[in-house]
Design a binder for these strands. Structure first.
Length: 200
DNA sequence: CGGCTGATGATCT
DNA sequence: GATCATCAGCCGG
């Protein structure tokens, strides 16, 4: 299963940010860690688009958000609240600052290693939330800017499993442009984060 | 389960 | 010095 994962090609990724956020549901995030492969199925995403005050690129390119301006399919990793790393997939064409936040995964491979990285938490809390999944996959600033469509420590894989029903809602935890409906999730998944009312 | 709070550090103004 | 796309822990129902 995980050993046969096919890396996504950049050409397969929708150029539009919202389409990419929907497309990524059900795909796999793969982390190569010391010869071991960790992976999880993406069950929740959020789009951060152009003209969106909540997007880190809203006020132009800076050192921190530079990866958002890379061609689609690159990792944008940053530290939130001094405690949690966030994994995003850059979207759109080069020079355009936009991306998709990966908010939750359903663990697939390397679960024992993830548990070791997360400490003693309930299984359902292993990768439920953007900070938690980053910790479970040992994602930090060193992975900022990595090409997720190329061989390496972190990449995206296709998934031949049947697609599941998806839902949408407002995004979580924002102080700006919080009313936009740009969060996408797989219906019925216990691995989705946030309050229940946002994931009916 | 829902709601609240403090911790915490990179980044930008 | 202010901001912040979170989390764990704690409390009440």
């Amino acid at each position: 299963m995980a050993l046969r994962s096919r890396r996504l090609k950049r050409a397969e990724l929708p150029a539009d940010t919202v389409e990419l956020a929907r497309f990524l549901l059900g795909k796999l995030v793969v982390r190569e860690l010391g010869g071991e492969r960790l992976s999880g199925r993406i069950v929740e995403t959020e789009a951060y688009i152009q003209g969106d005050a909540a997007c880190h690129a809203f006020r132009g390119e800076t050192r921190r958000n530079a990866s958002l301006f890379l061609e689609r399919g690159h990792a944008y990793v940053y530290l939130a609240y001094g405690t949690s790393y966030m994994l995003n997939v850059s979207s759109e064409g080069p020079g355009v600052g936009a991306g998709v936040l990966v908010r939750a995964l359903e663990p697939r491979a390397g679960i024992a290693r993830m548990q070791a990285l997360r400490g003693d938490v309930r299984p359902l809390d292993l990768t439920r939330g953007p900070g938690r999944l980053a910790q479970a996959l040992a994602i930090d600033l060193r992975l900022d800017g990595v090409d997720l469509c190329a061989p390496g420590e972190l990449w995206l894989a296709a998934n031949d499993e049947p697609a599941r029903r998806s839902g949408e809602s407002t995004r979580i935890g924002l102080t700006k442009d919080a009313e936009r409906v740009l969060r996408f999730y797989e219906r019925g998944s216990p691995w989705v984060s946030g309050p229940r009312r946002l994931s009916p």
